[in-house]
Amino acid sequence: MVVMQEFMQLTTDLRNNVLEDCLRRYEHGRKFDRKNYDDFNYIKHETLPQFEKIEKWEEDANTVVHMIALFPNQIKNTKDNLEIMILHSYFHDVRKKRFMELYQSVMYNLDLILNDEKQ
């Protein structure tokens, strides 16, 4: 059960920190230039822990998939969407409607896990 507790903490962290930071950065952060080497290195350095956290979340989710309210394809899509959101939040290269669709999708899946655990 320790694995499940760690997974739930990681899921909560992704939902309350990583996801919300993406939204805040997209709405209020500066737009970075893809072609600027300094911007690229800054983003690479800043996002590495987030990508590692998402990777760990996916591994853990696949380990406990039989105990959570998501299917394997939902786990993969959540991971992919969260990674895409991180990049979009720095570069602002999608319309707000699309960004919010990704946000809602990730939020929905993370909430499924967190709400299912409470019951």
Rank of each mutant, 00 (worst) to 15 (best):
M1G: 15
V2K: 09
M4D: 07
Q5V: 15
F7Q: 03
L10P: 00
T11W: 03
T11E: 03
D13P: 00
D13K: 12
D13L: 14
R15Y: 06
N16E: 13
N16D: 12
N17R: 14
N17W: 05
N17T: 10
V18M: 12
V18G: 07
V18W: 00
L19A: 10
L19T: 07
C22P: 00
L23S: 11
R24E: 12
R25E: 13
R30M: 11
R30P: 00
K31W: 01
K35M: 14
N36T: 08
Y37M: 11
D38I: 11
D38A: 15
Y42C: 14
Y42H: 12
I43F: 05
K44F: 01
H45V: 10
H45Y: 06
H45W: 05
E46S: 15
E46L: 15
T47S: 03
P49K: 09
Q50I: 05
F51D: 06
E52M: 13
K53R: 06
K53E: 01
I54W: 00
I54A: 07
E55I: 14
K56L: 09
K56I: 03
K56T: 06
W57N: 02
W57S: 04
W57Y: 01
D60I: 04
A61M: 06
N62K: 09
V64G: 00
V65F: 01
M67G: 02
M67R: 03
I68C: 08
I68W: 00
A69L: 03
L70N: 04
F71Q: 13
F71S: 12
P72N: 09
P72K: 07
P72A: 09
N73Q: 08
Q74L: 11
Q74A: 13
I75C: 11
K76S: 09
K76L: 09
N77K: 07
N77L: 08
N77F: 02
T78A: 06
D80G: 02
D80H: 03
N81I: 04
N81Y: 04
E83H: 08
E83P: 02
I86K: 00
H88A: 15
S89E: 04
Y90F: 09
Y90T: 06
F91W: 12
F91R: 15
H92T: 09
H92L: 10
D93M: 13
V94P: 00
R95T: 09
R95F: 05
R98K: 15
R98Y: 04
F99W: 02
L102N: 12
Y103H: 11
Y103V: 10
S105E: 10
Y108W: 06
Y108F: 14
Y108D: 15
N109A: 10
N109T: 10
L110A: 08
L112Q: 13
L112V: 08
I113V: 11
E117L: 06
E117N: 08
K118D: 14
K118G: 12
Q119H: 12
Q119I: 14
